[in-house]
Amino acid sequence: MSITINDGVFIIISGLTIVSALGVVFSRNIIHSALFLVLAFLGVAGIFFELGAGFLGLVQILVYAGAISVLIIFAIMLVMNVEAEKTNLPNPSLKTHLWGACLALLLIITLGTSIWRSELFQVLGPPAVSDAVGLLAELMLGNYVVAFEVAAVLLLLAVVGAIILARGVEEE
């Protein structure tokens, strides 16, 4: 069993992603959390590139690592009122930590062992097409056009709702 370059790339990228996800959860300064979150998003984008989903990787970099993380960092700057070291303290009650750790470990162990032991996963369909983006566009504007339009309306509503919510009610 030899390790090819592809496997090495996967191991490096997934290690980076998991370490930065742990950094998001465990760092005590929320700015550091946000920067680790950008790293985790970039790692996931690398996973997409490795899976041959180049368009989705680019969308991930643009939307997540670009837009959403900037939005989060702006919101952090707007709502930070104590010194930075104390912005992201863990919950003081031990009970929530135990619940969270139990749930997360249970999830990882049960799902992980079942994924690891199952032998069902093989390639069933014909091999991948080269023009994945064209196929994506045909699906999006063909069979799934209703979902596409609903997503557009959802984004518009979210933008308008966010503006109204963040502006607040004027005091009379």
């Binding site: 998991i18 919950n91 749930l103 997360a104």
Partner: peptide
């Protein structure tokens, strides 16, 4: 990998204020 990321996210939702 996805399961581990999801588990980390679940723990974060529970343990942060």
């Amino acid at each position: 990998l996805a399961t581990i990321l999801f588990g980390i996210g679940v723990y974060g939702v529970f343990s942060k204020r």
